[in-house]
Design a binder for these strands. Sequence first.
DNA 1: GTGCTGACTGCAG
DNA 2: ACTGCAGCCAGCA
Length: 112
Amino acid sequence: MAEQQYKFFEDVWEVVRLIPRGRVTSYGAIARYLGTAKSSRMVGYAMNAAHALPDVPAHRVVNRAGVLTGKQHFSTLTRMQELLEQEGVKVREDQIIHFEKHFWDPMLELRL
DNA sequence: GTGCTGACTGCAG
DNA sequence: ACTGCAGCCAGCA
């Protein structure tokens, strides 16, 4: 069914929506949670598509190093950083300070 | 229909 | 410790 083919994207968006304010996660963590650990790139791709949706905080999703690799896809290059700092997440040189401290793993938070 | 690209990651050298 | 490469899969030329 065509609907199930897009389920992956929908699941990604759903997980991203569940990210608490002031927390961040990685593409790989989401991919792993969905059972497609090796398709982390698709998560990023899903984010690109999610850009049109209102309730998907794509700025809370970064790569595993805590770098704002997707900032170029926002309206402005500083938009992503602004949104994060607005939530109390400090960013320096396109990288999240104390990334591990702000890290939110859906595997741990949702799976239990 | 074929091939390249990409908001990534993990392993090998 | 740093750098390079292969794997994954959807979208576009």
